[in-house]
Design a protein around this nucleic acid. Structure first.
Lengths: 242, 242
DNA sequence: CTAATCGTTTGATTTATATCAAGGACTTTT
DNA sequence: AAAAGTCCTTGATATAAATCAAACGATTAG
């Protein structure tokens, strides 16, 4: 623990704008450092937690990239999300005190372990943290509402367009390019997330590439015509089109 | 307000086991009555709240039946849930202080209005309420994870079987039959929720009926062979099958 | 350096569900 | 009681995506 004392401090973490409430006083920030107990490394392919595991903590991703997925009794798997630095995972465990999904690192990762008892205790003391926790959970609910719209109503091309736009936007918010990215997941994982088969993902990538909208080379994707992509996702909302 | 004072009290509401934390002291229960400000009637077809409305309150359903839905810019609608007595709606509004979905009464309804500031204030005072709020939100996240599995991986018959089993189970928990029910929603609304067209819902009802698994007469549905229905939803988990 | 493995692409074919269309059943209005 | 409207059912056909199959490319192991 001693050698972690310096490292495990939200107050001097460069991701605090993503994980933590904004506009905190320095003094309050120092007190909120207590929310994080330790850090934990997760190697690529390893689970941070799995279905059935006792729920004790939420996790804030410091580095790396995760997928969360659930699997049926008959083996079918559904990826329910992809998470990157600054995002919180583990919320599924609160309701039953057991996790109901698996969180798997898609690249070597480090997370801040936030024992949920700490979160709740500090939330009672700091209304701004309380509100923040509520917003994080509400955001996840709204995201999943949007996924239901995707899965229930959209065609393959629309789903993939939405997926790429969302991913690049989140990466851009973290200081990366707004047009280029390296995918951390396989075609099969994208397909699972979008309710499609890997062949359909591959074909749809090829189609978007043939249309000159994106450039794809394996895991590398460059968005050449962002407005075209937005038009596919949502014909109405594109400003640059007639 | 005066004539509401008696009525608006969780401590003598017969739904409190559904809405409220369990195992409360009488004294605490009385204090938690403050979470509900007023009640509100919603006529069939009316909105309790809509996309873009300012978020102020959560709502606990006292009587009646709701759907929540989101709609695309290009008019496509996705039903994101059906809610009945004792369930909480409005959580989508927390993250942006605006609602992102519409909540529509499918039959005349009454809700308890819980200003979110009251919820947060009392949550800081009563850890048991705080935990309860967290569980309600987590439950919604887990439910939507399950919906993603349905929409991404399951066939029409499996989706409808899961839908019927879920509905009858929730009704049974409220003291209704565990085999019969009157649907409050149209085929089109079921279809929207399950990512299918109304004709497919109708055909699948007919198929299940022909197979002797359910009896359907318009909105009336009786489950004749619950184990068969479970087997369709999930072949592995059915205990009574080989 | 070669073999093996894993992930990806592409083609041919199948299939589940959507779409189009018509009629039927129940409910509400006149 | 007739008319109109809504919701539901069923049939015929179309279609998007799944499935089956093969080959290719990139990475890892021997």
């Amino acid at each position: 623990m001693t050698d972690n004392t310096f490292k495990v401090a939200c107050s001097n973490c460069n991701l605090r704008e993503l994980c933590m409430p904004i506009g905190l006083e320095i003094a309050d920030m120092k007190k909120l450092d207590e929310v994080v107990a330790t850090r934990r490394q997760v190697k690529q392919g390893q689970r941070l937690f799995g279905n059935g595991d006792a729920f004790t903590s939420l996790y804030a991703i410091r580095t790396g990239f995760f997928k969360t997925c659930i699997s049926n009794e008959d083996g079918r798997e559904q990826v329910t999300g992809f998470q990157m630095a600054g995002e919180i995972i583990g919320l599924d465990g609160i309701v039953t005190d057991q996790h109901s999904c698996n969180a798997v690192a898609l690249e070597d990762a480090e997370v801040c372990v936030m024992p949920f008892s700490n979160v709740e205790e500090l939330s009672r003391e700091f209304p701004v943290l309380q509100r923040h926790v509520h917003k994080v959970m509400s955001r996840e609910i709204v995201r999943e509402n949007g996924m239901m719209m995707m899965l229930g109503n959209m065609r393959a091309e629309e789903r993939l367009a939405a997926f790429l736009l969302n991913l690049v936007q989140r990466l851009h918010a973290r200081g990366f390019s707004q047009s280029e990215m390296i995918l951390r997941m396989t075609r099969e994982e994208i397909g699972s997330y979008l309710g499609l088969k890997l062949e359909t993902i591959s074909r749809t990538f090829s189609k978007l590439s043939d249309d000159g909208i994106i450039e794809v080379k394996q895991r590398y994707v460059k968005i050449l015509a962002p407005d075209e992509l937005k038009k596919i996702f949502n014909p109405q909302s594109c400003q640059t089109c007639i």
